[in-house]
Amino acid sequence: MERVKKKMLGSPAMVLLFLGFAVLLMVPEVSAKRWLVGDGKFWNPNVNYTVWARDKHFYIDDWLFFVYDRNQMNVLEVNKTNYENCIAEHPIHNWTTGAGRDVVPLNVTRHYYFISGNGFCYGGMKLAVRVEKLPPPPKAAPEKAGAPSLSSRGAILLMPVVFAIGAAWDAFIYSR
Rank of each mutant, 00 (worst) to 15 (best):
I165A: 15
W43K: 08
S149W: 04
C86V: 02
D61R: 09
D62V: 01
V15A: 09
A99G: 10
P91F: 00
T97A: 07
L24V: 13
V162W: 04
F21G: 14
H90F: 12
V103Q: 13
E143A: 14
Y83V: 01
Y59E: 15
S151C: 00
N48I: 13
P148Y: 01
M125P: 05
R3I: 08
V75S: 04
I165G: 06
V103K: 12
N118Q: 12
V108P: 00
F172G: 00
W52F: 11
K56R: 15
L157F: 11
K33E: 15
R153V: 12
W63F: 15
C121Q: 03
V131K: 05
G154T: 04
N48L: 13
Y113S: 07
T109L: 06
S31Q: 14
M14Q: 04
I173K: 10
A53G: 09
W95H: 12
L134R: 12
G98K: 03
N82L: 02
G124Y: 04
L64H: 02
K6R: 01
P142E: 11
N79E: 14
E29W: 03
M14W: 06
K41S: 11
Y49H: 09
W95C: 06
F58V: 08
K33I: 15
T109Q: 14
K133N: 15
T50A: 14
